[in-house]
């Protein structure tokens, strides 16, 4: 009987110890998280603002957070598409419209790919593209974040029917170079971008034409 009591007490101690240890570390981590949350939110917002400017074809002279945020506040207006629940950014509305930037999000090979795609004021040609979040294979699909991959979209039209850069001038407007060894990520990216162009870019184009 006393032996059973000892086993029971040991089990209780184990539970109390682990509960106490967990509570202690959760308290410490929560306090640290709450203390640093404003800084992390500023960093995350800075990323989005810099990406929107770059997608609009604007390269800020300084990438200091305060400079980027003030340039963004000066040039960019966040808009909601009428009657539908999606947002886009209008860049340079005050000084002659410069570009429209569309956020995109979709399934990559391993996780979600998030980014922004910019179009010129006529919604005909791409002004830039930037990736905000991706979890693709480092060194392979992860290369969608590299400049050579992002910059190849500038001047193109889309939707993209092919993953190649071979062909005449006309074909180049509707194709992009895939990443060697990352066919699945390239194809997933193609479908994310095409869906954005078909649904949002074309909808805004129609809406602006109707307004005119």
């Amino acid at each position: 009987m006393p032996e059973r009591k000892t086993v029971w007490l040991k089990s209780l101690y184990t539970i109390v110890f682990m509960t106490g240890l967990t509570a202690l570390f959760i308290t410490v981590l929560s306090a640290l998280f709450l203390k640093t949350r404003p800084l992390i939110e500023i960093n995350e917002a800075y990323d989005v603002k810099l990406a929107v400017l770059r997608a609009a074809g604007i390269s800020p002279e300084s990438t200091e957070a305060s400079d980027v945020i003030s340039l963004y506040d000066l040039l960019v207006e966040e808009k909601e598409f009428p009657a539908e629940k999606w947002n886009y950014y209008q860049v340079g509305a005050e000084e002659g419209l410069h570009a429209f930037v569309f956020p995109f999000r979709g399934a990559g090979l391993w996780g979600e790919i998030e980014g922004v795609l910019g179009y010129d004021a006529s919604l005909e040609h791409i002004t830039g593209m930037d990736i905000l979040k991706q979890n693709e294979t480092p060194g392979l699909g992860g290369r969608i974040g590299e400049d050579w991959f992002k910059d190849q979209f500038i001047g193109k039209q889309g939707p993209f029917t092919e993953l190649t850069q071979n062909g005449g001038e006309e074909k180049l407007l509707y194709s992009f170079q895939a990443i060697t060894g990352a066919t699945s990520t390239s194809a997933a990216f193609q479908s994310i971008i095409n869906e954005l162009i078909e649904k949002h870019v074309k909808a805004l184009r129609r809406h602006l034409e109707e307004e005119r």
């Binding site: 570390f25 410490v28 981590l29 640290l32 998280f33 640093t36 800084l39 992390i40 960093n43 800075y46 990323d47």
Partner: peptide, 15 residues
């Protein structure tokens, strides 16, 4: 817990 501390500090101060 210590790894999360490192992660939070990097996200806040070395973004």
């Amino acid at each position: 817990s210590f790894v999360i501390i490192v992660d939070i500090v990097l996200k806040a101060y070395l973004w």
